[in-house]
C-alpha cells in the first residue's frame, strides 16, 4: 500500500534491542523538497532511526513510509533512496571511477547517461584527476566525496546523509552544502544527520532533535531559536544543549530547561510568527510514559 502525502513519514516508529529502547515512538512528517536536519547527541538513536528509514533495520513497532512506500517493501525503498552512512561504503581496491560505475550499473543506469553523470560529479567535486587512482590511496575527504556521489548518482527522491561533511576541507564542505541546497531545488528530499549545527542552521527547513530515542523537539531553526529567545543571541546550539540536557539542570545558562515552550512567558509565545511551527515532543513523550 503506498501513501502519497510526505517524502518521509514515520508513525510511532520504535526499535528495541532486548530491553534497551534505541528509538521510542518516532513520528516524522518530512515534506518533499525539504531538508530535514536530524540532531542528537551520540547514542541518541539517530543512526538506528536512519537504518529503519532506509530499510536496513526492521522496526520493532510502528511503521514508516518513504515516498509513500512502506519501509518493509525493501525493493521499492531501494529505488527511491540514496544513502551515505557515516563511513562511506566504498571499496578500497577499486578506483573512484570503477566504484561509481559499479554502483551505477547495479542501479541499472543506462551506460551513456551514467558516464555523463559520473564525469559531471567528479568534475564538481574536483576528483577528475584522482578518479583512476585506487580508493585505498584516497584521503578521508575524497572517500566521503565518492560516497556522496554514489548516493546521488541515480538521482533518488530521498537522500539520507549521515555526517556528509565529516572529514571534508572547507572548500569541499561548501560544495557539499551547495549540492544539498540544489537537491531540494529539484524537489529532492534530504534527511541530514550531523553534529555540525551551523550546517543544519544553514540548510535545514525543519530540525528534529532526538534524545535517548525520543524526538524531544521539532521545528524550523528560526522557530526553535525564537522559542528560547529569553535572552539575546540564542542559537541553535543553545536549543540543542537545552533540549538534550537531563531533566533539571540546564546545559546553557542563557536558555531555559527542557520544558521550554510549555512556558508561555518564554517559549513559543515569544515570537508569534513561529508559534505554530514547532512542537515540544518531550512533553508528549513524558505523558506517554
Amino acid at each position: 500500500m503506498t501513501r502519497n502525502t510526505h517524502a518521509i513519514e514515520a508513525r510511532d516508529l520504535t526499535k528495541r534491542f532486548g530491553t534497551e529502547t534505541a528509538v521510542d515512538g518516532l513520528d516524522l512528517h518530512v515534506e518533499r523538497g525539504t531538508v530535514y536536519g536530524f540532531l542528537g547527541p551520540n547514542g541518541a538513536g539517530k543512526t538506528t532511526a536512519m537504518r529503519m528509514l532506509t530499510s536496513l533495520t526492521r522496526p520493532t513497532d510502528g511503521e514508516a513510509w518513504i515516498d509513500g512506500n512502506p519501509v518493509s517493501d525493501r525493493d521499492a525503498i531501494r529505488a527511491s533512496i540514496g544513502y551515505l552512512p557515516e563511513e562511506p561504503p566504498v571499496f578500497d581496491e577499486l578506483t573512484g571511477r570503477e566504484q561509481l560505475e559499479y554502483f551505477g550499473r547495479l542501479r541499472d543506469l543506462p551506460a551513456a547517461e551514467m558516464t555523463t553523470r559520473i564525469e559531471g560529479w567528479l568534475d564538481r567535486f574536483d576528483l577528475e584527476g584522482d578518479a583512476d587512482k585506487r580508493i585505498e590511496d584516497y584521503s578521508k575527504g575524497m572517500r566521503q566525496k565518492v560516497g556522496l556521489i554514489q548516493a546521488l548518482l541515480h538521482e533518488p527522491d530521498v537522500v539520507f546523509l549521515d555526517e556528509p561533511t565529516s572529514g571534508l576541507d572547507p572548500r569541499a564542505a561548501r560544495t557539499v552544502l551547495d549540492v544539498i541546497a540544489e537537491l531540494t531545488d529539484d524537489d529532492h528530499t534530504v534527511f541530514l544527520s550531523t553534529h555540525i549545527l551551523s550546517v543544519v542552521e544553514e540548510l535545514a527547513d525543519v530540525v528534529g532533535v532526538l534524545y535517548e530515542g525520543d524526538l524531544v523537539t521539532e521545528g524550523s531553526p528560526a522557530a526553535l531559536t525564537a522559542r528560547v529567545e529569553a535572552e539575546e543571541g540564542t542559537t541553535l546550539e543553545d536549543v540543542f544543549l537545552s533540549v538534550t540536557a537531563e531533566r533539571g539542570p540546564v546545559a546553557s545558562g542563557s536558555v531555559p530547561g527542557p520544558n521550554l515552550g510549555s512556558d508561555p512567558e518564554s517559549g513559543s509565545g515569544s515570537d508569534p510568527r513561529h508559534a505554530g511551527d514547532t512542537t515540544d515532543r518531550q512533553d508528549e513523550r513524558a505523558d506517554d510514559r
Binding site: 532506509t54 536496513l56 533512496i81 544513502y83 571499496f91 547495479l106
Partner: peptide, 15 residues
Amino acid sequence: PDNLDGLLTTVSHRD
C-alpha cells in the same frame, strides 16, 4: 562482504 549497507541499499540481498 565489505560495505554491506551500501550494497543492501542498492540491490536486494538475493543479488
